[in-house]
């Protein structure tokens, strides 16, 4: 699996990351995704930018500048209320979808 992941899936993963970990910068998000996927999702970190823009434009995330522990400046993304709601919806949809695909693939 490369950068060729389904559009929307990346959005869902980012929302989920922000919901569980709290506000994160782009690097933090990318790291988390890599970690969770046990390095299977070996994407260039720059590729998550469009998804970040999309989420922000939807009003699902809100961005602000802050400092890291090492006192480096970074742009932090936080999930909004609407984002949490959207996450619920998207999660339900994803479950439905993946369940369906799973069933389909199981039928040999």
């Amino acid at each position: 699996m490369h950068a060729n992941i389904l559009q929307g899936t990346l959005d869902l993963m980012i929302l989920r990351t922000l919901a569980t970990m709290g506000p994160q910068h782009a690097y933090g998000i990318a790291n988390r995704l890599q970690q969770v996927s046990e390095d299977a999702l070996n994407l260039n970190q720059g590729t998550i930018y469009p998804a970040l823009v999309r989420l922000e434009q939807h009003g699902w995330t809100r961005a602000s500048w802050g400092k890291t522990e090492n006192n480096r400046e970074a742009k932090y993304y936080a999930i909004t209320k609407a984002g949490l709601k959207a996450l619920d919806g998207e999660t339900a949809r994803w479950r439905q979808m993946s369940g369906m695909v799973e069933k389909l693939l199981a039928e040999e």
Binding site: N44, Q45, G46, T47, Y49, P50, V53, Q57
Partner: peptide, 20 residues
Amino acid sequence: AYGGEEQAKQAHRDERSLLW
């Protein structure tokens, strides 16, 4: 690790303008 810096920027821009 970051990948193409310019590519990322362009994707950002495209997303900003074209998506809506």
